[in-house]
Design a protein around this nucleic acid. Structure first.
Lengths: 246, 246
DNA sequence: AACCAAATAATTGTCAACAATTTTTGGATC
DNA sequence: GATCCAAAAATTGTTGACAATTATTTGGTT
């Protein structure tokens, strides 16, 4: 008996942090990634309740497994766990939003500085250039979920080039949460995270101009931060979004 | 039937991240904080195994509770959870060590920049000055656990002054893990984290010289990072370290 | 019709028994 | 004495049932 609610179509794929133990093809892993991606691509809107029973049915698994997944997602900051009330898709406050963007400013600034110092910047960031191409393409093709994911991955990709594994994990969580939040205010023609700005940053990087790259990144993040407002609830059919890959 | 092993005395107290649900005085909360502090103060050395049964006996609670605590500590990076093998006090590799210190460099640099920009720096950092006093006192009194904790709290205290809650949480985890790691190489006369250097940083800050403060912080962290090596196992009696507050 | 309280249903939290895995033990063999 | 192998013990992982809490419905009163 699952709730009957609205629907948001979409295909899954993509990466998520929280590197843990379960073997690759396990149900737990699949559930974790599917929910993670669904949140990231905003097919599961903030404040949506994830009841354990529903997830048990969808993934045909025991409650124990569901609870582990929810705990992991809570550790990632993607869902809030309210005692005796259940798990809800996170909905960061505007205060948290401010902190998140400030932290990203600090980290991404440092990343750019480290990258610009390298000799062969051009070849190093080449794959990122390609990603931005895909990002533009996805936008033009109106593949919204894919576009959202790619515009987030731009930032984690840069972090990965820094070679600091810890920083990558941290950045990935930050980017995920900011993406989740920005998705709250999705308007039809809203270019939340422009690929043009992404390319401008890469340009500055290739010229070895760290300061310019940083300033452009600051502007870019600032623009994203400006689009932050609370969100309204809404009901959805979990089954229509999750667990369709088997 | 608890293991019979070596012993390291010490009193607990102090703060830990992972702000979650359980009510304040619960067994779960007590267990979490006691283990956290014991790790921080290096009364529980890296690679020590935490068997669920032992913790059940020590805290007279169900396995369920123990597992939740271990999961939280794992999310903090304080223990490693090996599938079907159990929970072990974390023992960061030298690679991780490098990443950790690099990340701290990035964040603490940004914190100092933000603090130095404030008008009334002197009054803002006054409480931190006092903390460093206590730190020196603890060292002179040979209160090693207290001293270790205070020298770690210096860094989290600065982060708190920045007013960014997310950054505080992040910094706290980083500092905890670096402290855990530095503790691995504790030699008798080893001043891992000097209060003199802490004071020098505050001095620069009071003069409004952000660059000097940053350079001193960089030197300070660099000095800490230099003392990093693997560690050997060792056996301990959990009961003698944990669960003595009731 | 609107409101409140009690009863009912649904959901989450906890516990104890069972299953699967790993570690230890005790010989047997070379 | 060291090495290998199988049985036993110890430890972790999972399942299901029950308890506690929260949400919803029901029925009556004004």
């Amino acid at each position: 008996m699952s709730k009957t609610l609205k629907l948001i179509a979409g295909a899954d794929e993509g990466a998520a942090p929280n590197e843990t133990k379960p073997r690759k093809g396990s149900v737990e892993e699949r559930m974790y990634h599917e929910i993670y991606d669904a949140i990231m691509e905003h097919r599961l809107p903030p404040r949506t309740k994830l009841t354990e029973h529903s997830l048990c049915e969808i993934y045909a698994t025991a409650r124990h497994t569901v609870r582990k997944v929810l705990a992991r997602l809570a550790a990632d900051g993607m869902v809030d766990l309210e005692p005796n009330r259940g798990a809800f898709i996170a909905s960061p406050s505007t205060d948290e939003a401010h902190d998140m963007f400030e932290l990203r400013q600090m980290l991404e600034r440092a990343v750019l500085e480290k990258l610009a110092a390298q000799r062969n910047v051009r070849s190093v960031i080449a794959p990122v250039r390609q990603m931005v191409q895909q990002e533009r393409q996805a936008f033009l093709n109106n593949e919204r979920p894919k576009w959202i994911r790619l515009s987030a991955e731009f930032h984690t990709a840069l972090a990965e080039l820094s070679g600091n594994a810890l920083l990558v994990t941290m950045m990935r969580r930050l980017v995920s949460r900011t993406t989740l939040m920005i998705a709250s205010v999705e308007a039809p023609g809203n270019n939340a995270c422009s690929f043009d700005e992404h390319e401008a940053i890469l340009d500055a990087l290739e010229q070895g101009d760290a300061a310019l790259a940083q300033s452009r990144m600051a502007h870019h993040l600032g623009a994203c931060a400006d689009r932050v407002q609370p969100d309204d609830p809404g009901s959805f059919d979990l089954r229509s979004v999750l667990g369709r890959s088997t």
